[in-house]
Computed example of a mutant assay.
Amino acid sequence: MKRAVLKLKWGGLRSLLPSISTPSAFTQLFLPRPKPSQITLESLQRDSSLLTSFSPLLHSLPFSTTPLPNLHLDGVIEDGESSDGWEEEDEGVEPQIGDGGDGGGVVLGDVPWGERTLSVAREVLLQFGDDMDLYAFKTSPRGYIYVRLDKISNKYGCPSMDEIENFSSLYKKRLEEIGEQGEISEDLAVEVSSPGAERILKVPDELDRFKEMPMRVCYVEGEPASKNKEKDGVFMVESVETESEHCVWKLADVRENRDAASKGRLLSRKQKDWRLRLPFGMLRKVTLYIEL
């Protein structure tokens, strides 16, 4: 087994800050939002929540205005580990539904050990009860396994760092066991992560689950859909009509939908009364929306 990596995307980090008390609970913490050259200890100190959560790590490093010495393109590396040799997913590629990454789904990449490693992941998940599910699973020909866990009871679907670490440990141990029996290669690497707070939602299955949260909705109107320009907006689910395969949306009360000249006022009465009814087939992509 090469090594296991615990990965929490920026959106997931924001939702889990209160539960993170020490950097020793994970191997890697990825911060994809800022560029590495722009991140310094001073910039981290300016975010009190990050400083509180990662104070053991920050206090162990010299304070300066230079970029963090162990901060690579992918994030903060604990214990001086290098990310060299680790195959990273393309962060610049827009997630697509069913891509095995942040778009969810299963992609086995035609590797002979894909089905077996997937079945083992599902076996391990049984130990976590009904509150944990597999959001995405992907393998690569180079021997990498990417697992994204979905916690049903969490507002964003993000497991805690302890849960991610526990799954990673159990999964790695089980893979080593079947590797020793010759069922799969012993030279596999595992990355376990949360889906990220701005996850792509399954339509219509997850619309009701996240109906209390604003969503970025990409859609088309009219017939035929292929000849209409794609639109998008930040909405909330009003209702899901399963039998007719339609959903009704209303404007989310977020900064993007407010009048820029209103100086922080809430939505107008006209905006509050606005509704959009769309068939499921007209929805191109729906993701959770996080207002920064």
Rank of each mutant, 00 (worst) to 15 (best):
W274V: 10
K270V: 01
M132Q: 06
L31I: 09
L58G: 08
E123Y: 06
L51Q: 11
W274K: 12
F128T: 03
F26C: 06
S21Y: 09
G182T: 11
L68G: 09
D208H: 03
V254T: 01
R33H: 08
T66R: 15
E291F: 09
D130H: 11
V286E: 04
P23L: 02
L17Y: 05
G101F: 07
S239I: 05
S55R: 12
S262D: 12
G109I: 00
G98H: 02
F235W: 07
K285E: 12
R116I: 14
P36I: 09
L73F: 15
L6S: 12
D232M: 10
M236G: 02
N70Y: 08
G12I: 02
E176Y: 01
I39C: 02
G80W: 01
S55L: 15
Y144F: 15
E42F: 04
E123F: 05
N154T: 02
L57I: 07
P67H: 12
L201G: 07
D47R: 14
V254M: 00
D102G: 05
E212C: 14
W249Q: 02
H246Q: 12
V93S: 13
Q28S: 13
S55A: 15
R269D: 13
G75W: 04
A136H: 03
A25Q: 13
S60I: 00
G157V: 07
I152F: 09
S15W: 11
V76I: 15
M1H: 12
S140I: 12
M132V: 08
I178T: 10
S244K: 15
G105Q: 01
M161W: 12
H59L: 14
L207H: 01
E42I: 04
T139K: 08
R122L: 13
L278R: 08
I39Y: 02
V5W: 07
P67V: 07
E191F: 03
S64T: 11
E245P: 00
R148H: 03
L44Q: 06
A25T: 09
F210K: 08
L108D: 02
M282Q: 13
S168L: 04
L125T: 02
P204K: 01
R148N: 03
A25L: 13
G129I: 01
G196F: 08
R148V: 01
R33V: 15
T65G: 14
P95A: 06
W249L: 15
R148F: 02
T27A: 14
L57H: 08
V192P: 00
E223I: 09
D232K: 10
K202R: 11
L278K: 05
G11N: 03
K202Y: 07
L57C: 09
G281M: 09
A197L: 00
V234H: 05
L16Q: 15
L50T: 06
A121E: 03
T65K: 14
Y146V: 03
R148K: 11
L44T: 08
I97S: 04
K35E: 11
S239E: 13
M213G: 04
W113V: 00
K263P: 04
L57M: 14
F137Q: 03
V286N: 05
L188S: 06
E186M: 11
V254P: 00
P141A: 07
S82V: 05
Q127V: 10
N70S: 09
W249T: 02
R284A: 04
